[in-house]
Design a binder for these strands. Structure first.
Ligand SMILES: [Zn+2]
Ligand SMILES: [Zn+2]
Ligand SMILES: [Zn+2]
Ligand SMILES: [Zn+2]
Lengths: 163, 163
DNA sequence: CTGGAAATGTTATAATGTATCAAACTTTCC
DNA sequence: GGAAAGTTTGATACATTATAACATTTCCAG
């Protein structure tokens, strides 16, 4: 539903946030899940940019706001959000990012710019299909795919072409 | 070169180890890199099975052998081995595994059995191509691909089919 | 030899993630 | 409404993974 917006370039990011929160509320209502204030606030913090945020970064922001938060506070909220498909964990960065396709059944593929830190989440059916095929060729039953691609986004390629 | 052996099934694993060590020696000689005793021993420990090993598991084995080892000892050796393409880090597990295609230019794709813990490293040109294509379609310059697939290996599917 | 580079030893600490149990809050059902 | 059951949060402590910093040793070229 959300028109795919382009993390790398300037855009009306508040729209990303509003959309994500609206989607989250709808999804939780639909799934009878409780999007409590802390969970919602954590989701909002995760969405404050298109750069993945570490759990302890979230924690720092919560405590700065005067919330009575400890590590489990954050990890519980993140677990909840992951289980409902609202955030993804980027294993190669130990960090979290808002899901750009919440509600849609998808396997994420992440393009991570090593220069600016922004992450674009893609759904590439061709890639998913190829992966499924390769797994099946080995008689392996794939359940969970981690696909993270580090490199340079278009913007950072032109800014720093000498490498 | 190494004929791809099948982590999931019983096999002469000592052959895997010998092959890996021989390859490592050859590669290091060729690259003028020093495969010191500690580095070689760490590689051997990593290869003790087809299950990824945590850095602190390696450390425990080293100290059990009476070696004077601390975390940096292990992480340095692992860094060296990674840089020379002899081991891979599995980001989703925070663990390390011997490279099954040392010397060959490749992007690893890992099939990780969540039941038995064994990992099969594949080279799937179709997958790599699809990923490259998807990245290029976004004008993203891919440099490093993390592709880890968790699921059930053939053996564990038949043993525990009820899920 | 010997001087510089590479590797290792050593200590301390940072960063990330969990276990556990008690307290508070919600929902359900009567 | 009110008690029981389930869910969420608070709070403390701890486990696991990884790195910083600096001293010492080893290796190798010249
Ligand atoms: Zn945005
Ligand atoms: Zn960038
Ligand atoms: Zn083997
Ligand atoms: Zn298995």
């Amino acid at each position: 539903m959300a028109s795919q917006a382009l993390p790398y370039r300037p855009h009306n990011h508040q729209a990303c946030v509003s959309q994500a929160l609206a989607d989250a509320r709808a999804i939780c209502r639909e799934q009878n899940a409780r999007l409590t204030p802390t969970r919602e606030r954590v989701l909002e913090l995760i969405w404050q940019s298109h750069k993945p945020l570490g759990a302890y970064d979230v924690l720092a922001e919560l405590t700065a706001e005067g919330q009575n938060a400890a590590p489990p506070t954050v990890y519980r909220a993140l677990d909840f959000l992951q289980q409902h498909g609202l955030v993804h964990r980027i294993a190669s960065l130990n960090a979290f990012i808002g899901c750009a396709h919440a509600g849609e059944h998808h396997t994420g593929m992440f393009l991570i710019c090593r220069n600016c830190g922004n992450v674009l989440e893609l759904t590439a059916p061709g890639v998913s299909g190829a992966i499924e095929g390769a797994a099946q060729a080995e008689n392996f039953r794939a359940e969970d795919v981690t696909l993270e691609i580090a490199g340079l986004c278009p913007r950072c390629q032109s800014e720093a072409p000498h490498d």
